[in-house]
Write a protein that binds this DNA or RNA. Structure first.
Lengths: 164, 164
DNA sequence: AGGTTATAGTTTGATATCAAACTATGTGCC
DNA sequence: GGCACATAGTTTGATATCAAACTATAACCT
C-alpha cells in the first residue's frame, strides 16, 4: 500500500508529480463546535472497537450503568439521564431485555410506567464493559493530562447544561 | 403542564406522595467519554436549531466550508478532513449539487476523481451559515470562558488525533 | 501489453438517532 | 361520573452514519 497522508491532499501536477497539500480548515480550525464533534467521534469510535471485542455495542454501556445505579428507573427518566429521546430507547431496552440483561416490570401505582432493573447476567456484562471503559478512560487521561483533566470535565458538563 | 425536574426523578411512595430523587451517574459522572458525548450532542442540537432557521442542516456547514477553503478538493479528501466515511458523503454532495451550491467536475488526469467547488449561490448560503455559526460560537465561548478556551481547544484536537 | 493491485466514488444493509403521531393510562376539575 | 389535558411508552418516517461489496479507472511490475 502506498503511504498516504491522513489529513493531507496529494494533487498531481502537469507532469504527474505529486504535490502535497494540506487541508485548510478555515474558521473550523478554531471553532469549538467542530472540534468537539471530531474529538467525540474519534473517542466514540475507539471505545466502540474496544467494546465490540466483548460483543457489546458502546451505546449499551451508559444505559446499563444508569439502570444499575438507579434501580427501578423508568424509560423516560433513563432517556433524560442519557441525553436521548425516549423513542430511541425503545429498541435498546427491548434488546437488553431479550438478552436477559435487564428486566422490566410495570409499576403498580402507574401502569403506564415500567421499572427497569439489571439482572445478575446484566451485572456480569456491565462489569466487563466497565473494565473496558476504564482502559479507554486511561488512554483519554493520558492524552488530556492529569493537570487539565478536572477543568476539562467541568467545561464539558457546563456546555451540556448551559448551551441552548 | 406540571413542572418537571430535568435531570431528576419523581417516584411515588405508598401514599402517592412525590419523592424527588436525583439520578446517580456512578462512574459516568467523571468519565471523559460520556461527558464528551453529552457536550457534543447538546452543542450540536443547539446549532441544528439555529441553522434550521435558515433552512440548512448543520452537517452541510462543515462540508461547504471545507469545499470553499479547498477549491477542487476530492470527495475522499473531503471525507477525511470531515472525519466521516466517504460513503456518507455521497448523498450530501449529491444534494449540494442538486441545489446548485456545489459543482463537481471530473479530473482530467484521473477520471475516477471529482473536483468540488462552491458556486456563487453556495457562497451566499455559506456566508449565512457562517454568521449563524459565529453566533453559536459566541455562546460556547461564553460558557467556556476566554481563559480556558485555548487550552480546551488544544485538548479536543489532541483527542481527535491521538485516541485510537 | 497484460495481469495484479490500488484508489475514487457508489451502492447496499445495518444501526442510531430524532420528531411527530399514536395508544393507553392517569390526573384534575366541574 | 365524565371531559379535558398530561404523561409513559411505542410506532413511524426521516436522516446520518459506518462498513463491506461493488464498478470504474489508474498505477505498477514484468
Amino acid at each position: 500500500m502506498r503511504k498516504t497522508n491522513v489529513s493531507g491532499r496529494v494533487r498531481r501536477g502537469k507532469n504527474g508529480e505529486a504535490i502535497a497539500e494540506t487541508i485548510r480548515f478555515g474558521p473550523l480550525e478554531y471553532w469549538v463546535g467542530f472540534n468537539l464533534r471530531m474529538a467525540q467521534e474519534h473517542a466514540f469510535q475507539a471505545f466502540s472497537r474496544r467494546s465490540q471485542e466483548i460483543g457489546e455495542s458502546p451505546g449499551r454501556f451508559a444505559t446499563l450503568t444508569l439502570i444499575a445505579r438507579n434501580p427501578g428507573i423508568s424509560q423516560t427518566e433513563l432517556s433524560h439521564a442519557n441525553g436521548r429521546d425516549k423513542s430511541s430507547l425503545t429498541p435498546v431496552v427491548e434488546d437488553l431485555v431479550r438478552r436477559g440483561l435487564v428486566e422490566r416490570k410495570r409499576m403498580r401505582q402507574d401502569r403506564r410506567t415500567y421499572r427497569l432493573n439489571v439482572t445478575p447476567a446484566g451485572k456480569k456484562t456491565l462489569a466487563m464493559l466497565t473494565r473496558c471503559a476504564r482502559r479507554h478512560e486511561r488512554v483519554l487521561d493520558g492524552i488530556i493530562g492529569q493537570r487539565d483533566r478536572k477543568r476539562f470535565l467541568q467545561i464539558l458538563k457546563k456546555i451540556a447544561v448551559e448551551v441552548e
